[in-house]
Nucleic acid binder design. Structure first.
Lengths: 158, 158
DNA sequence: GCTCGTAGTTACGCGCGTGTCATCAGAGCC
DNA sequence: GGCTCTGATGACACGCGCGTAACTACGAGC
């Protein structure tokens, strides 16, 4: 199921960002497609599920009002310190520090917030859930659009 | 003590931002000096202690990588919902929601983070503390510079 | 080999400041 | 009062980051 990888257009609609934004992020090394990278005009990028997860996390951070510059720093760190089990972890950003930690350590982190430093917390499990949900929704919609003949008419309505 | 209000230059050195930044914030209505606002070229702004507190909070948010746009929204809300006892409160920003709440409710907030939404937490007490500390430090330095004769020589060194 | 869709590229806009200079209020001096 | 001196405000142009619009170029699949 879910054929190998995601094209840029599928990625944009699943993650909820524009093509230009995704393109810009790829060019500026924020998230490069890990399956197939672009190789000159006319080639096609191909994103992995993991890539989508990262893209979704980034979108969450941006939506929460974090500057892209901070996001870049956070991901430079995250890429080195993530060993698989994303689901239960929390991403914590505090000033220039970034951490990925489990629920228990969270209380710890909150104490650091006492010093007058702002702390950002994002549960990665929740992000993964909503991403999966979105992928399923898109799959359904696509098969609904392709199987019943309802042919060109619906396309022209746009 | 601490004569009535703070001039812009004192405010910048206490809060730790540039004059142009403070000026920009005043012009764009982020933080206006509540004691004396500018009244044409040549006039002088005068900031209250409360203003400095706000400025410091804003700096904390920016240092943590929050976009100024989000900061503006947060303050529009905060100004309506702050009734004095800042010390024990936490400022919480989550997506487009802003809250000011006490320690107990924090656990509650952390649960919201489970949904895959990012949560920003800032302890206002800590901010106040470090602000007071900074003001004292500046006061001391100033009296050290003015009392002992060590006259023009030290100024020329610049 | 032709079309379609994606990548590449350039110019542009907006937000957030910064550099710079003219302008002007107020303090101090005469 | 009139004068200069100081230093803050106003204003305007500019730079950087983050995209977007619009157009070109090119590869893949029919």
């Amino acid at each position: 199921m879910t054929e190998q990888g995601f094209t840029t257009t599928r990625a944009t609609s699943i993650v909820g960002i524009s093509y230009r934004q995704l393109d810009y992020w790829a060019r500026t090394d924020l998230v490069r497609p890990s399956l197939v990278d672009a190789a000159g005009s006319g080639s096609r990028r191909l994103y992995s599920y993991r890539d989508l997860l990262e893209l979704r996390v980034i979108k969450s951070l941006l939506d929460a009002g974090i500057k892209l510059e901070s996001v870049r720093k956070a991901f430079n760190y995250m890429r080195e310190h993530m060993n698989g089990d994303i689901a239960a972890a929390h991403l914590v950003i505090s000033g220039s520090d970034v951490m990925v930690c489990e629920g228990g350590e969270l209380i710890d982190v909150m104490n650091r917030a006492g010093q007058g430093v702002l702390v950002n917390v994002l549960a990665l499990g929740g992000v993964k859930l909503s991403l999966d949900q979105q992928i399923r929704a898109q799959d359904e919609q696509e098969s609904r659009e392709q199987r019943p003949p309802t042919p060109i008419a619906s396309r022209r309505a746009v």
